[in-house]
């Protein structure tokens, strides 16, 4: 969902770039509180992993592909603040090194994928954690559902930007229908990849997982 230059006009792009800058500043502050000696390298590697998996487009429907965004994956592993920053790093590298995502549209893309997608899935995740049993399996279920929501959420972000400042005149309704429909499908792929990855990390190093509260796994066994 990397937006090329030209879809959205410059004033709208500038406004969303400013909003993204504010969000990134907040994420730096939040990360400073949340990142420890151990979770800082995990946050870095999560960005690397997301870059890699974003290269793997999977087919979703006739002539359409999708790829991981990684917002929920990063949110569950390292928390929402560091997740926002990890996504921002990936989007900047893609735009500047690989010509993927326009430069004037960078603020729009950051807002959709590094802000909306991360924080919508964080809200869903926290809600599910409250109502679901506190086991690893249920944590993976919560992750799956949060990821499912994260992709259409980013798609709706684009539709809002289109409604405000599209350079084209096609109806917003048509764009909304097509964007949400397609991205619900891509969201299923996102959810599967995210759940598998989180399961693997939970199995090997659950103590590093932000979304998993029982960090004292070593001292767990009591009589």
């Amino acid at each position: 969902m990397h937006i090329p230059d030209g879809f959205i006009d410059l004033p709208t792009s500038a406004a969303f770039a400013a909003a993204s800058a504010v969000a990134v500043a907040g994420a730096v502050k939040g990360s400073r509180r949340q990142l420890s000696e151990q979770s800082a390298p995990l946050a870095g590697l999560t960005a690397v992993f997301i870059f890699a998996v974003q290269m793997l487009n999977f087919p979703v429907a006739a002539g359409t592909s999708g790829h991981l965004i990684g917002a929920t994956l990063a949110m569950v592993l390292v928390g929402p603040y560091a997740a926002t920053l990890a996504l921002v790093v990936v989007l900047i590298i893609q735009a500047f090194l690989f010509a993927d995502g326009g430069l004037t549209a960078l603020g729009l893309s950051i807002f959709n994928m590094a802000v909306i997608s991360v924080w919508v899935s964080f809200a869903v995740f926290m809600l599910l954690k409250k109502i679901l049993p506190k086991t690893k399996s249920w944590l993976v279920v919560a992750t799956f559902i949060s990821a499912l929501f994260s992709v259409p959420a980013a798609a709706v972000g684009f539709v809002i930007q289109y409604a405000i400042g599209a350079n084209a005149t096609f109806s917003v309704g048509a764009v909304l229908n097509a964007m949400v429909g397609t991205h619900i499908l891509i969201g299923i792929g996102e959810a599967i990849i995210t759940a598998l990855t989180v399961s693997a990390v939970l199995a090997s190093r659950s103590d590093l997982v932000f979304g998993w509260d029982k960090k004292d796994t070593i001292l767990e066994i009591r009589s």
């Binding site: 969902m1 990397h2 937006i3 090329p4 230059d5 030209g6 879809f7 487009n57 087919p59 979703v60 002539g63 359409t64 592909s65 999708g66 790829h67 500047f96 010509a99 993927d100 326009g102 430069l103 798609a155 684009f158 289109y162 599209a166 350079n167 084209a168 096609f170 048509a174 764009v175 097509a178 964007m179 397609t182 991205h183 891509i186």
Partner: peptide
């Protein structure tokens, strides 16, 4: 294959407004 946004832009028609990437 084109990704979700690109395909939607083709189907709806606003792909025409895309500009070449600076880099």
């Amino acid at each position: 294959a084109p990704d979700g946004l690109e395909k939607v832009a083709e189907d709806v028609g606003f792909i025409e407004t895309a500009e070449d990437h600076t880099f």
